[in-house]
Design a protein around this nucleic acid. Structure first.
Length: 280
DNA sequence: CCAAGGCCTGAATG
DNA sequence: ACATTCAGGCCTT
């Protein structure tokens, strides 16, 4: 059966993966680490640094992925409804800081916090006759004071941000290494960062380290499992412990297979749209 | 191991 | 108005 597998840029950006993006007439502009991306409605990218980035993961075989995750009616419907939705391949450091900031927060506030961080610590550049602030480098945030970071409105997360930046700057966490090793090793490693638990780790792994079996379980996804999958994935308690998270993830991988992360993204998008939640 | 409580902040709710 | 709750969790006890 024929499917139109072209990219839906709008839905991909408005799916909770990225925060430092804005639309200016027909183009989307976004910060990705030390680069600025300009994207047209077909997903063609012009990059400030002239980097070749596969931000929309065009390398993925969406025909095969869609086929393999459309394993039940709920997911099948979500995939069909948001077929153009894509996982985005982000700068790992920006992604890590973004999701540390995201914990116990909401999209509007996360965006606001990250904009302040970029403005305060990032390099100002001009691109397409507009002003942008790149995301700060690890060294810059590692050497900032806690109170300077707190001024960006991130509250108690400030020290997590500083510590995380230090670990990257000092190569205690090495993203290039994490790219190479498998999901479980990478997760164990990145969870060593204070402020990074199961959910944040899975976001970083899925959105920036090419681990497509990562399946971030946040409030929304727990709600999805409770509502539509109560038979297969029973949620027993209010707070999910580390062990329960692991067990759930194991069952989820058994159900969806190696592209479970894509399934998560379609279901997350679906559920938040059902509740008419705002995006960027 | 598990459960409960606390946490910056600001927009939304009552 | 003003208080309370809640928001894409995590850490400590």
């Amino acid at each position: 059966m024929y499917k139109n597998l072209s990219i839906d840029v709008e839905n991909s950006i408005n799916s909770g993966q990225v925060f430092l993006w804005k639309k200016n007439y027909q183009y989307w502009y976004g910060i990705n680490g030390q680069d600025v991306l300009k994207v047209d409605d077909l997903g063609n990218i012009k990059s400030y640094q002239n980097n070749k980035t596969d931000f929309f993961r065009k390398r993925d075989d969406m025909m095969e992925i869609v086929r393999s995750i459309s394993i039940d009616d709920i997911t099948k419907n979500a995939v069909e409804k948001y077929l153009g939705l894509r996982l985005l391949d982000q700068d790992p450091f920006q992604c890590l800081i973004s999701f540390i900031v995201s914990s116990n927060s909401n999209i509007q506030k996360i965006k606001n916090n990250l904009e302040k961080i970029s403005k305060k610590f990032g390099t100002k550049v001009r691109f397409e006759n507009q002003e942008f602030f790149l995301f700060p480098k690890p060294e810059k945030l590692a050497k900032a004071s806690i109170s300077e970071i707190t001024d960006c409105g991130v509250g108690y997360r400030a020290k997590f941000i500083k510590e995380a930046a230090s670990m990257i700057f000092l190569k205690k966490i090495d993203f290039e290494y994490l790219q190479k090793c498998d999901y479980h090793d990478a997760k164990e490693n990145i969870c060593l960062v204070a402020g990074v638990g199961n959910k944040v780790a899975d976001c970083v792994l899925l959105f920036s380290l090419n681990k497509l079996e990562a399946f971030p379980l946040d409030r929304w996804m727990i709600r999805v499992l409770e509502k539509y999958y109560s038979d297969q994935f029973q949620i027993t308690t209010k707070t999910i412990t580390d062990k329960q998270y692991d067990i759930l993830h194991e069952k989820i991988i058994n159900h969806y297979g190696q592209y479970a992360g894509y399934a998560q993204q379609f279901l997350f998008k679906m559920e938040r749209e059902n509740y008419e939640k705002k995006w960027l």
